[in-house]
Design a protein around this nucleic acid. Sequence first.
DNA 1: ACCTGAACACCGTTCAAGT
DNA 2: ACCTGAACACCGTTCAAGT
Lengths: 234, 234
Amino acid sequence: MPPRSRNPISRRERPAKPALTRAGIVATAVEILRAEGLAKVTMRRLAQELDTGPASLYVYVANTDELHAAILDDLLGEVDLETAARGDDWRERLVGVLSSYTLVLFTHPELARAALVARPSGENYLRLLERLLALLDEGGVPAAQAAWGVDILLQSATATAAEASTRAQSQARAQQQWDAMTRALHEVDGQAYPQVHALADQLLSGTPQERLSWNFRMLINGIASTPVPQPLPS
Amino acid sequence: MPPRSRNPISRRERPAKPALTRAGIVATAVEILRAEGLAKVTMRRLAQELDTGPASLYVYVANTDELHAAILDDLLGEVDLETAARGDDWRERLVGVLSSYTLVLFTHPELARAALVARPSGENYLRLLERLLALLDEGGVPAAQAAWGVDILLQSATATAAEASTRAQSQARAQQQWDAMTRALHEVDGQAYPQVHALADQLLSGTPQERLSWNFRMLINGIASTPVPQPLPS
DNA sequence: ACCTGAACACCGTTCAAGT
DNA sequence: ACCTGAACACCGTTCAAGT
């Protein structure tokens, strides 16, 4: 048995309180995230978990947005950069990596929402960026197009995951919303909105997977075929 | 002079309290939005402005997310669906409408953030959808591709505006973030991240306008050239 | 049916004061 | 330099009770 506190009156028994560090704070935040979701990852709750006051956290973290970005950095370690299909076409491998990224964000859609505002810039994000650029390069996509395109690939995947965050909040509410949308589109006035009326079914068609896959392939085609404007020689 | 209250003791003098309606609530919300930003559009503040308690609002609005969607619907009335350039190529007109949509959202980037989660589905949103579909049709884009593509065009524009919401919060913080990103990309280890290292400049190049325009043209190219998967005959 | 006071259960951030 | 108690100024949502 390890020796307990020698002074049981001045210090109550509890697990040794570890020194605060940025890494420790982020690690605890990720724990709360996994156990209870992002909504519970608040400065106050985090402080409580770390056995201190919320003010103490501000020594290591600028604000809540920055905290969220740091959490995402951490989570991005789970993205599968290689994908099962090694021998496949570069496009399919690219879609694979992007799908993995999307799937990781789907486990915490509220975090995707945050990521649109405060982009991560840590190690795992860099690794992802590098991999995407390498695959675009392998496909012969001109570097300038790849550089601009990679941004949009990630933005699109992030936004898709963020859109799922209502659904995550309440299954019932999400169904309601979907029903309302379906009804609205089908009952649209064909005189005033002929296109919407005619395409109502197609606007709602496809499984999420089909649409996500089409989304990525469409983006890759667009990126590969759209030259970046020439900078004016100065 | 209009007659004042006949019973100054039982009812204090104040502008006649209008009956609560959903439209009235949304209109007041938009007023606060324009005057003080979305952060101030809270249920409590809105109730105060309407001279009632917050609980009363829940008769007309399901929750804060739904309120935000309704506000956006309203704001979408400002999107210019025709664009100056009438004679132009359909692509240029399409880019024009999308740019107008983006610009409207740029005036309230926090709302763009909300829009990713609770999509609007009101009159103004329908009008926008109709216009985008009509332009894609004019360009000979197959209907199925247009139907899936229009979603992504709007998503991309919305996400771009949402990304600006940090910047809106604090000019100084935004500059800091940009500097941090620039430094990170330029100081990246060329051995570990050869692509990122080589493309650092290009990843950061271009004005926001140039990138937005390229973004839309790239999406249009992708949408026009990527067939939707055939549904299996059932 | 519509409206509301009051309560429940929280927030982020700052700052002066301590160690 | 690092840490913190306490305060400031708020939140969304629910519910029992009124009209």
